[in-house]
Structure formats: C-alpha cells, structure tokens
Amino acid sequence: MIVYGVALLSVCLVLGMLIGEALGVAMNVEANVGGVGIAMLFLVYASNSDKFKALTEGVSASGIKFWSAMYIPIVVAMAARQNVAAATEGGLLALSAGVAAVMVSFALVPVLSNIGKDDSPAPDTSEEQGAG
C-alpha cells in the first residue's frame, strides 16, 4: 500500500525532529539541531536495509517517491512565501553582509571539497580575504 511508504517517511521525520529538538534542549540552544538531517539518515538506513523491504519496495516506494518528486514545486512555494520585501528594505548594510557571506562561502566550496581526497595537500586558507 502506498500509505506504508508515506507512513515510513512520516515516522522518520517525526523521530528525527524529536531527536533534533532534544539535542537543542540538551545543548541549551533555541533551535532544532539537525532534525531533518537525522530523519534523512533514518530513511537512508531504511531504504538500504532488508528489514524494511515491505515498506520501501513496490507500491509502498511510490508513496515516498511522490513526495520526493513534489520537492521542487514545494520549494517554489517556499520561495513565494519568503520575506523578500524585508530583505530589500534592510539597506546597504544587510545587503553587503549577506552578499559578502555568500561570496566567501562559495569560494570555500572547492577548497573544502578536496578534504578527504588523497591527491591534494592540506589547503591554505590565505586566499579567502577581501571577497565581496
């Protein structure tokens, strides 16, 4: 049944969120710490394990795949409900801070992507200044 897949997905999300919330409380932080990421790990585990075959194969799988395919439309809806007007009203300071943070972070992607690959020596971080 399709709903088995949907239910598995729901249980993963709820469990992940509970753990993320508990981590937040334990660390005394006002945020959910990695709830979605933990939920994803549960789903990855379930879809790679034989124990959950009944929930992750055949028709049940299409209950999960449907929501995976709805991802982009949901993200479009998410974009449409952002507070874009406030972002434009923040003035030059907000604009500079946001743009500079993104530029520097973009520049670091290739640097950090090399970590764990054998062929590159530990990269120096001295080039990252002055961006943006």
């Binding site: 979605v36 790679n48 993200v75 809806a77 998410m78």
Partner: peptide
C-alpha cells in the same frame, strides 16, 4: 502557498529526497 511552502511540507519533501541515497556516498 504558505502551507505548501511552509516548514512542515518543506522538511517532509527534503527527507523524501534521501530515498535511494547510498550510505557509501555519505
């Protein structure tokens, strides 16, 4: 749009994208 693009649906769909990810890649 607020409900469809809200945190609950977003997180639900994000988790669904993990379906079929291989542990070795992680």
């Amino acid at each position: 749009i607020g409900l469809m693009g809200g945190g609950m649906m977003r997180d639900f769909a994000i988790v669904a994208t993990a379906f079929g990810v291989h542990i070795s890649e992680l």
